[in-house]
Design a binder for these strands. Structure first.
Lengths: 328, 328
DNA sequence: TTCCGTAATGTAAACGTGTACACTATGCAA
DNA sequence: TTGCATAGTGTACACGTTTACATTACGGAA
């Protein structure tokens, strides 16, 4: 693999200095003579020259990559958000590096180090875990953006997401208004702030009147299936289940299907997120719609703000809505 | 945002030269005195130093990022492959930059330029489009890897994927062996090599005996729905549909559901890919299983080979199998 | 004693870029 | 004529690494 041409090669071929070539590629064309522009352009084309983003990053002490850490690459909502972010970043000339923490604190810390090594323009944390390393980075630099899961107390950084309490509350109210009995919450891990806020909102929405059966559950189909199987072992009641997540809801649904249960006659299921494939593959699922594709633009704008404007704890709260379908 | 500490800061604090610090971070610890190691380590920790990947890349004339171009970020199989690749690359110390070409040749070329600018270690092309820029890059450097869609004739580069002809053939044979009537192929765009090979294999498998109705279709749920609606307008026959893609199959399924058709009594559907969520959300879909999670390791190995070993047109053919479920 | 090998460390030169600053040529006003 | 603004271009340094080569200290052999 021949090593790529540099700015010097282009300068030599077109008979100008590297400064002029650099000016051409940084768009400062107003200060260059038209015939010079043309000769640089053609020399660059002939050599197949592309400016080295590495040299540029080094010189400017900042790269054009944004790193996004996701807790679970197999979550469909996460994938929707990632697609949205990638697209929005491309619009402002940035690249996205996607990495999976698998809900593992050590992996997260390793990836944070990688992001620092890459001099990432920004680090987007979907579902961050509170570690010393994270706190340290939040203090040292201000390029962290939290998504979906708010920063732990004491960490000051922008947040993009929905109002989890309000969303949970809305579901709880809906349950009451429709007189649902035997309410069940299959909620996410209790130590995740977003997850517990969602649950608190739901309980508040349901109110004191009814008691709510609770199951703690990882945000995966497999875990949902497991908890669902546990719950549905008792077929004497018609449960109304609020799942913290669409993935969990899919798992519960599978458990129900295996028992040949009819929905909603024998079981009512609510999910959360309403990812893109729901409309196609789970057209039965009633769920809280979170606007996955609004995340990208919001995050891109946050990144694009000059550090001056950025007050370091801006919060972008996106709207949610209830999508009522057959399972309700 | 305070600018990050450099190797010089660490050298100064620990009272050694930058060379020694560099040796520490590149793992050449056998040539450093134990007490020196400790002082460098603690100085680095105190400063929160992480080596600049940019400086390193510049010096070594090669970065640690791999760029992967996908034609459709919303394709679930693509997402599975991406997750697999990301994971495998992490294992060998590389980062993945994911970008979406949206089947747009200009976007692809722009992203190829970006990849060149980033001095990407490798460029993984899922479903590449044949453009002059692509040919030029394939000639100039040898870090292109083609996935799923073979390089166009004249381009010499490694390929990872399945044998599309054989897979199509296997489905065709299955149709014949089970006496399926009214065979339909909703195939992918004809100018994509992988897609047309799949169709050719299928037709060969079905043989001359039966004629096959053909629809050309983009690899999306929406397009599948559209073609499916067209086909199912005629309810006088029980069709047997081979979809080029699971996404297409989902669309056809939706069209069938809207007409309250029973599957497989009134319609038989075959898909292609068998992505991860099928087991959960489309447990009815008979499909060709492609081992998405084997792509990552295969690609990582290809990248890790020394250029010497790499004969530039290695081909890794992964196995496929038929997953027979309710829709058959 | 001198000589030499070895372990541990330092010096300095790249790698590819952007830009402050310096420089030249030209046109125009005084 | 001189002075000065301006357009166009070049020179040279800095950004943070890695590593070939140089240097030093020390112990043992001759």
């Amino acid at each position: 693999m021949a090593k790529p041409p540099t700015i010097r090669d282009v300068a030599r071929l077109s008979g100008v200095s590297t400064a002029t070539v650099s000016r051409f590629f940084t768009g400062k064309t107003s200060a260059i003579a038209p015939e010079t522009i043309e000769s640089v352009r053609s020399a660059a084309e002939e050599l197949g020259y592309t400016p080295s983003e590495i040299g540029r990053s080094l010189r400017l002490a900042s790269s054009r990559v944004v790193m996004m850490l996701v807790p679970d690459a197999t979550n469909l909502f996460t994938a929707d958000v990632a697609a949205s972010v990638e697209n929005a970043l491309k619009g402002i000339g940035l690249s996205l590096v996607l990495a999976n923490t698998a809900e593992n604190a050590e992996k997260q810390d390793g990836l944070l180090a990688d992001a620092q090594g890459l001099r990432a323009r920004a680090i987007v944390l979907q579902g961050a875990m509170d570690t010393p390393r994270l706190r340290e980075m939040a203090e040292r630099q201000n390029n962290l953006i939290f998504v979906n899961r708010r920063p732990a107390p004491g960490i000051v950084a922008p947040y993009v997401g929905i109002d989890n309490f309000a969303a949970g509350f809305a579901v709880g109210r809906y349950f009451i208004e429709h007189g649902y009995e035997n309410c069940v919450a299959i909620h996410g891990p209790r130590h995740y702030p977003g997850s517990s806020r969602r649950l608190e909102g739901f309980l508040a929405g349901v109110g004191e009147m009814r008691q709510v059966l609770r199951f703690e559950c990882a945000f995966t189909m497999e875990a949902g299936y497991q908890q669902g199987s546990l719950l549905l072992a008792d077929r004497s009641r018609r449960y109304t289940v609020f799942c913290a997540n669409d993935m969990i809801a899919y798992g519960v649904y599978r458990a129900a299907m295996e028992r040949n249960m009819r929905i909603p006659e024998e079981l009512i299921i609510f999910g959360f997120d309403d990812n893109r494939v729901n409309g196609w593959l789970a057209p039965w699922l009633t769920t809280v719609k979170v606007p996955a594709f609004d995340f990208g633009p919001a995050i891109a704008e946050l990144i694009n703000e000059t550090p001056a404007t950025n007050d370091h704890n801006r919060t972008v709260i996106l709207p949610f809505s209830l999508t009522i379908r057959q399972s309700a």
